[in-house]
Design a protein around this nucleic acid. Structure first.
Lengths: 334, 334
DNA sequence: CTGTTAGCGCTTTCAG
DNA sequence: CTGAAAGCGCTAACAG
């Protein structure tokens, strides 16, 4: 256990100065301050080493009120509870700076941190990961620290969504994309293309429409597709929310789902089961993923007695398909 | 600041024994254990008085993954963030014992605790509330500690839901109730009755159907209503989930909403906007309520510099009506 | 099972 | 602005 004393030695100051720096109180010279901060980073010192931090497992998500993140909290909480640990929650509110501050806090307060970072660069995350062994990245894959990442195989997700439609005879499949430049968006699109290619079909960019990943975005992207008068019989969507927008756009235009056009979502949010028709979608096992992340975190700090280094499989989860009522066999045979 | 030493003196044991009791380790006689626990309760001692607890605001809800509770977390988190506090989250998983343990933990770890208790008795909650001044009950009203409660006026909610339908000309209004014996269920029903009475209508118990407050429960309760061949033109539901079940049951029977029967929900969950038709409902301002609870907690421990004791209005929030597409003017004039 | 005692991590005081 | 040293809250070791 690295103490304030070690930090003091490393920074060539007294323990009192370190204490002052940590608590941001009274005046300390900037030289001493930076020296202390460097020493803290180097040694991986954590405040409240008085055992409190060992009992805390921290989570950072974008917004605690979103159902998807609720699942993640639940997953982490369940293993926290089993291991008699407390759950510390912070959110980034979709802001880079808030996200950075949150992670810094987590790193300094907790031995374990499950982080869903949307905005920080790989390099910055690698840096934080190096500070505590219990930091796990969720829904993100960084090769150089892949043993610290738990992610979903989004390519496969896009693939099975598209594949499901192909198997039902659909050949003219539109794709609603997220215009955000993040991994899951490009991966899911790649899965869509892979499925088509594998089926011997050529990819027509006309069938791909990008918008902001909201309900309104889904509606707009669908309008754009419809405007082109393509022989569309099915649509795969970046996520359930956009799919909800697509369903609304179709309904407004008298196009019946699934009779005329089938729709597939992604995520399997609660709303999927309440849409009309109930949405066929790809299940994102968020809670399971979070559980696994939490267990991995415990394992990496040796809390988890058993299998210290036993099974080190790739931490990539495979999504599965959920068939509901928004997809059917293609009626317009070509 | 009450220390372990004070507790030891109060309990007539040594500090070591107190330490042992707190950490539930090694053996301690039950006599000593209870004596220590009593002393802790009496003096309001909190572990980690080493300043950690003052930075923590704890929340307990039933299930962190439910959207409704997500709102509550978000509300508390927003004020926590503003006041530079960390958020500690525990859930009861709908179990009495888990709930009790969670509250105990919160009380001993945090200076502030926002608690959504569904299962504990008033007396027990009063007891916990007496242990720390920063404990606030949310969505619950206990008269003797009402300055520690933030709740919704559920009677008013049931009232405006019913009133909305009455104003649209409906006179034969069914009511889907929760069979659970909790305050909000009876309050919302009371609001329903009040609105009818106020309109000079007599209450016919035939129109009231109770089931478990789930989608399936809503479906069943609706079947039961339909089976009676009542001249039903509208339904008010205990919550949105049951209303979703009601919509499904109506659709399955070829009854159009809102053309034939209007439906009103309660809570205004995310799904309300995605149902078909979009659900008119009563908005439960969960996040706002949680924010207010958190602010109250800070105020009660004197953290909130200003207005120490200034405005002590009743902490009852008023719900409002959200008009969407599931309600319309009554067509069958009597 | 319990108290004494030594010790640890940290903060605060005080002198410079 | 800083360090030495005293002090505080707590835990661990040991003897009974």
């Amino acid at each position: 256990m690295v103490s304030i004393k070690d930090v003091a030695r490393e920074a060539n100051v007294s323990t009192a100065t370190v204490s002052r720096v940590i608590n941001r109180q009274s005046n300390t010279s900037s030289a001493a301050t930076t020296a202390v901060h460097q020493a803290i980073a180097k040694l991986g010192y954590k405040t409240s080493s008085n055992k409190q931090s060992a009992n805390m497992i921290g989570v950072m998500v974008s917004d605690v009120s979103e159902p998807f993140f609720g699942q993640i909290l639940k997953g982490v909480e369940s293993v926290a509870q089993k291991n008699d640990k407390r759950l510390l929650v912070l959110s980034s509110q979709y802001s880079v700076e808030t996200e950075r501050q949150a992670i810094k806090q987590l790193v300094s307060y907790c031995d374990h941190a499950i982080i869903h970072s949307k905005w920080l660069t790989d390099d910055e995350l690698i840096e934080y990961a190096s500070q505590i062994p219990g930091l796990i990245l969720i829904n993100r894959y960084i090769k150089s620290i892949r043993h610290r990442c738990i992610a979903l195989d989004n390519v496969h997700g896009g693939y099975i969504a598209t594949r499901h439609l192909l198997n039902k005879g659909h050949r003219n499949i539109g794709c609603l994309c997220s215009e955000q430049d993040i991994d899951d968006a490009v991966d899911r699109l790649a899965g869509y293309k892979q499925a088509l290619t594998e089926f011997g079909l050529t990819i027509d960019e006309q069938f791909i429409s990008s918008c902001y990943p909201s309900e309104e975005g889904g509606r707009l992207a669908t309008y754009n597709l419809l405007a082109k008068k393509l022989p569309l019989t099915a649509i795969v969507s970046y996520n359930d929310i956009m799919a909800a927008g697509a369903l609304a756009a179709l309904a407004e235009n008298g196009i019946k789902c699934p009779d005329n056009i089938s729709v597939v979502g992604f995520d399997d949010l609660i709303i999927a089961g309440y849409l009309n028709p109930k949405l066929s979608t790809v299940r994102y096992p968020a809670a399971a993923m979070a559980e696994q992340a939490a267990r991995l975190s415990l394992k990496l700090t040796g809390q988890n007695e058993s299998d210290q280094s036993s099974f080190i499989r790739e931490h990539i989860l495979i999504p599965s398909f959920v068939k509901r009522n928004s997809t059917s066999v293609c009626s317009t045979q070509t």
